[in-house]
Simulated scan of single mutants.
Amino acid sequence: MTTTSTALPRRDQSARLENWSRAFYRFRQSWLSVVGLVLVIALIVLALLAPVIVPHPEHVAGGTNTAERFLAPGSDYWFGTNALGQDMFSLTLVGAQVSLFSGLAVVVIAIVVGGIIGAIAGYFGGWIDEILMRITDLLLTIPSLILAMAVAAALGTGVGNMIIAIAITWWPAYARLVRGEVLGKKEEQFITAAKALGAGWPRILGRHILPNIVSPIIVKASLDMGFAILTVASLGFVGIGVKAPTPEWGTLLSIARADMPDYWWTAVFPGMAIFIAVLAFNLLGDGLRDVMDPQARR
């Protein structure tokens, strides 16, 4: 008579919990990384709750109050008002929703498109790899902001077109990253064993290779979020991104530049929001890199 032992699953679960515990310990050793995580969580919460907690929703919808234009920051208007008498705090708060989720959409699209192209190129190699990588290299030779501006100008203004324009310039970097990781993983013994058991290439890529290269993708995505937000703001600033009355940090800066320096608050607070968002994601990305990058582990 045989009995089934449960010791192995317990050890596996214990090892997994121990790995997470060590990762969390390494992460919290850097107080800057913890600050970045707290700031990112706070920004996401504010973006999600913005439509509910915004003090002047009518200003967000495009309403004006010229009798209270250019009021300095105070108890009634924490961030002051702009040339149309709109509450800058309300506009900046709702602008977080547009900027953050536009940046997130750009990164997600870039990961999906670049991941698929990079995985196919790295796994099959040969002429498929040559064609896909030459297209990737061609896009990488063009400055991303210039290319995004050209695509956005061709597609027209709007949040959706802006996201597509930036994502087109963003995916080649992920394609290169995934291709390099796949080239290294496909030669390992567990992939050879999977092939010997008759597994097809979709299963090998989806079940064996891609789950083992998630860490560098997560690290790059966390670092890219800040730059994606900055690119979204840049397109809004030059007038080919989000258009008023939709509040977006770059658009708010573009409108406020005519009021500087006399009415400094119309530009300082949206600019500070961009600075805090980029800084937060960079700090978080540095912390995740220390945790997930094997070469960075001590």
Rank of each mutant, 00 (worst) to 15 (best):
R203T: 14
I204M: 12
L205A: 06
L205S: 03
G206I: 10
G206C: 09
R207T: 14
I209A: 12
L210G: 06
L210S: 01
L210Q: 03
P211M: 13
P211Q: 13
N212Q: 13
N212S: 14
I213F: 07
S215H: 09
S215R: 07
S215D: 15
S215Q: 10
P216L: 08
P216K: 10
I217G: 08
I218M: 12
S222Q: 07
S222L: 09
L223H: 04
D224C: 11
F227H: 11
F227E: 11
F227K: 11
A228M: 04
L230V: 12
T231I: 08
A233S: 13
A233F: 00
G236W: 01
F237L: 10
F237A: 08
V238H: 04
V238Y: 02
V238S: 05
G239W: 04
I240N: 11
I240D: 12
I240R: 07
V242Y: 09
V242I: 15
K243W: 01
K243A: 14
K243S: 15
P245A: 12
T246F: 07
T246G: 10
G250W: 05
T251Q: 14
T251K: 08
L253V: 07
S254Y: 03
I255D: 15
I255L: 14
A256W: 00
A256F: 02
A256E: 04
R257A: 11
R257C: 10
A258Y: 10
D259C: 08
D259K: 07
D259V: 05
M260V: 13
M260L: 15
D262I: 13
D262H: 12
W265Y: 09
A267N: 09
A267T: 06
V268H: 00
V268K: 05
P270F: 00
P270V: 00
G271T: 03
G271R: 07
I274N: 09
F275Q: 03
F275E: 04
F275I: 13
F275D: 01
I276V: 15
I276P: 04
I276W: 07
A277V: 03
A277N: 03
L279P: 00
L279W: 03
L279K: 06
N282T: 09
N282A: 11
L283H: 05
G285N: 02
D286C: 10
G287Q: 06
G287N: 06
G287L: 03
R289T: 01
D290G: 08
D290T: 04
V291T: 08
